[in-house]
Design a protein around this nucleic acid. Structure first.
Length: 499
RNA sequence: GCCCCCAUCGUCUAGUGGCCUAGGACAUCGCCCUCUCACGGCGAAGGCAGGGGUUCAAAUCCCCUUGGGGGUACCA
């Protein structure tokens, strides 16, 4: 019915965030869908900043959003820092345009000044609600005479400008994901405000002027905008613009099915970035929120996403944000990284933790790479590399109390430690090939299984009972540190009178 | 209050009238691998919200109910 192929190469979409200081994952998902749609159709992806709320909008707040988009790899073709033929791309710099089109509307009798105060409006609204009617502006300022206007103005009232909406019929929204949605003009589209008394345009008006002037062909946005769409369509028509195609994508919910918000935990892209989520995983996960390809694939590369994405496959129902699945997916992408890539990702975390210096020598990097090789299958977040690798970098690693109690308090502990200490001391090299047979000799001597020997050693060397394979740990640590750690552990155990 | 949207395993989804005794993924549970934890492999449990129609045949189409979400601003 709606063949996307028809719009090949002429597609223009946009993402229009307001600079709130952070990019919500819902916004990121909207940006992603727009971006994928543009790239799929070899179209143009426009970034427009909706900063009409001067109080909230700062340059820094805008930069955070640009940074988040760059982290995700969602590059824009027109917009801040990139220019384009349809600028400016900041709404705050387009005020004259909005005024111009509002004036046009007034000339055509499709907009008028309204002197009702917010208090009066609110009171009437309450009354309507009480009576079980639709809440809408009653149109009382629509046909004011010049004298009446002057009289109202004389009272000190500052007018807003309202749109003179259609007073009959229906407005149809042809939505690419929902089909035709019908709104009754009389009850659903009232004479809404297009210019506030502070001289700024409202969202519903500015968005139409901008999208029309920027030649946007497809408006892909959250479902929360569906109800406002008939208002916007009426403005398009009153201004003589052809409305774009609309696609309202489902909302993103928290585990309790309410709109995903800060109280559900991390919702800002920057936060996920800081916690060590890979952009590839974020993008892949976000792509699956409200979109699916077939009955089996969940892992998609960026190029596959671009190739396979289509609005027709966007689902209609809201999606719950599942952090566990995101974590799993991040692990998948971490495992796909080359060791060098993983190193680049982990380096800042290790530097911040004080494990590595600003300048890393080739030798130390070699060591770090070996550690990463062992850690790779164990990481969910890159940030996990700090906790999981601590004992590889510091010698005064902490001992986990309960683990020590559980594993190092057996009667043979001291003998086992001494035995291993001896083996290590005499070992020509610390690899499995040499050590395993030596350990096996000990097993017979103590009448235990391999785990009975390895676990105490693991706790002694790492302070925990979780680590990569023991021979890898031994080899990485090297003879000197291994011996010192066994001695250190023995001292600790004696001090605490555990042996 | 009024209007709009939505409804398949706990979660994301495949399914567009017969291919469905409903498929996959995450999570959960069990087994295998094994020196711990991961990774990996195998397997299990788990769903068409309810009720009416239409049809030879419905998860798929229609209606109602229920549930969830959104909108209803001089926010965006």
């Amino acid at each position: 019915m709606w063949e996307e192929g028809f719009f090949m190469s002429s597609v223009r979409v946009r993402f229009a965030p307001s600079p709130t200081g952070y990019l919500h994952v819902g916004g990121a998902r909207t940006a992603l869908f727009n971006w994928l749609f543009a790239r799929h159709h070899s179209g143009v992806f426009v970034l427009r900043i909706e900063d009409t709320d001067a109080a909230r909008s700062t340059e820094a707040a805008t930069q955070v959003i640009l940074d988040a988009l760059e982290y995700l790899g969602l590059d824009w073709d027109e917009g801040p820092g990139r220019g384009g033929d349809y600028g400016p791309y900041y709404q705050s710099q387009r005020l004259n345009l909005y005024k111009e089109y509002a004036a046009t509307l007034i000339e055509r009798g499709r907009a008028y000044e309204c002197y009702c105060t917010p208090e009066e409006l609110d009171q009437r609204r309450q009354e309507q609600m009480k009576q079980g009617r639709d809440t809408r502006y009653d149109g009382r300022c629509r046909h004011l005479s010049e004298e009446e206007r002057q009289a109202l103005k004389a009272q000190g009232r500052v007018p807003v400008i309202r749109f003179a909406s259609l007073e009959e019929g229906e407005t149809l929204v042809e939505d690419l994901v929902r089909g035709t949605v019908t709104f009754d003009n009389i009850t659903q589209v009232d004479d809404f405000v297009i210019f506030k008394s502070d001289g700024m345009p409202t969202y519903n008006f500015a968005v139409v002027v901008d999208d029309a002037l920027m030649k946007i062909t497809h408006v892909i946005r959250g479902e929360d905008h569906l109800s406002n769409t008939p208002k916007q369509i009426q403005i398009y028509e009153a201004l003589g613009f052809e409305p774009p195609k609309f696609a309202h994508i489902p909302m993103i919910l928290g585990p309790d099915k309410s709109l995903l918000s800060k109280r559900h935990g991390a919702t800002s892209v920057t936060q996920f970035q800081d916690e060590g989520y890979l952009a590839s995983a974020m993008v892949n996960y976000l792509s699956l929120l409200g979109w699916g390809y077939d009955d089996s694939q969940t892992i998609f590369s960026i190029s596959e996403l671009i190739e396979k994405f289509s609005i027709g496959r966007v689902s209609k129902n809201p999606a719950v944000f599942d952090i566990q699945k995101l974590e799993w997916m991040n692990g998948v992408y971490i495992r796909e990284l080359s060791l060098d890539e993983l190193y680049e990702a982990a380096l800042p975390y290790w530097q911040k933790a004080g494990f590595l210096p600003e300048e890393v020598s080739a030798e130390v990097k070699e060591y770090a790479l070996k550690i990463l090789k062992e850690l790779q299958t164990r990481l969910k977040l890159v940030a996990d590399a700090v906790d999981l690798a601590q004992y590889f970098f510091v010698d005064d690693y902490p001992y986990q109390e309960e683990i020590v109690q559980k594993i190092l308090t057996k009667p043979q502990t001291e003998d086992i430690m001494n035995y291993v200490h001896g083996v290590i001391k005499d070992a020509p090299k610390l690899d499995e090939e040499y050590l395993k047979p030596q350990f096996q000799v000990g097993l017979e001597k103590f009448g235990i299984k391999m785990g009975g020997l390895i676990q105490p050693i693991r706790v002694a060397l790492t302070g925990t009972n979780v680590s990569p394979g023991i021979y890898d740990v031994l080899e990485l640590l090297g003879k000197e540190r291994v011996l010192a750690r066994i001695e250190r552990t023995l001292v600790m155990l004696r001090e605490k009178e555990l042996i």
